[in-house]
Design a binder for these strands. Structure first.
Lengths: 143, 143
DNA sequence: ATCGAATGGGACATCGATGTCCCATTATGG
DNA sequence: CCATAATGGGACATCGATGTCCCATTCGAT
């Protein structure tokens, strides 16, 4: 349903949020999130291009959040690596009705819209401060 | 977001609903839905295994809906070919908290739940009778 | 009975998502 | 200035989703 890449990106961002405003190395993030390190590189690069994180090369470098957790939504992360594709035109491309969706695709798009909205309205701060007792990402028994 | 297979399956089902209770051949459905015929075969076979359609071999055979449109939801179709995978355990599999999801995954799962619910509550009958002027699937200028 | 129409299903082809590897580049710290 | 730590990014490997092909099987019609 959601790509693995999205899952990985969210894990990485949450992990970075935990250590914010410090930097973390790819290796550290990989260890904490159980995302294969070489692939995590790519994901972090994508997050960098989307300007959600900034990175610093060289010794004592690493990656850090580019914004505060209050100003960073799940949707931001999703859109950075694997944007939700809304349905704006009938995929069958029949001109029967201009830009109006047939009921089937209208329903599907509406469902997508619901997800988008839910993700847009959820900031990292909310996820982190949830009073569930469970820490986001589930680990940090150490740390 | 949704696999192409889901899209194809929905198109096929809608098309079958249009001609119900008659049968349609794979070739006819393919033409109406613009789904590549050989692949559509596979999709229809899956729908058959899920008992959403029944098929008849041989001359004047084909495929037809196995249920009435009132009793057939979008979720049925989706689940037949590419079930929505809810998140029931933390993917990181840390024992920190038994079966409780961390806030991040709880949010994601909640979004999935919303989709599931929306699809469960939408029957084919509703999609077909929508008073939008647009016929589902967008074609049938011919009929 | 036989021919042709149609699905059943296995084998194969292609393509993009996922995952790995390697080296260039950049920064820090001694 | 040099060694080392780290990211940047291109090239390649793997795997599953998608798409194609072929033939066996089944049924209807003549």
């Amino acid at each position: 349903m959601f790509s693995r890449t999205v899952e990985y990106a969210l894990r990485a961002i949450v992990q970075l949020a935990h250590v914010a405003p410090d930097v973390a190395t790819t290796e550290q993030i990989s260890a904490a999130t159980q995302v294969p390190e070489p692939y995590l590189r790519k994901v972090l690069q994508a997050l960098g291009r989307a300007e959600l994180v900034t990175s610093q090369r060289g010794a004592s470098g690493g990656v850090r959040l580019a914004r505060g957790v209050e100003d960073l939504t799940i949707l931001d992360v999703v859109n950075a690596v694997d944007p939700i594709e809304r349905i704006s035109r009938c995929p069958l491309d029949l001109k029967s009705h201009g830009d109006q969706l047939c009921p089937l695709h209208a329903r599907i798009d509406h469902a997508l819209s619901g997800i988008e909205e839910a993700f847009r309205n959820t900031t990292l701060a909310e996820v982190l401060s949830e009073p569930t007792g469970s820490t986001p990402l589930c680990d940090f028994s150490k740390e």
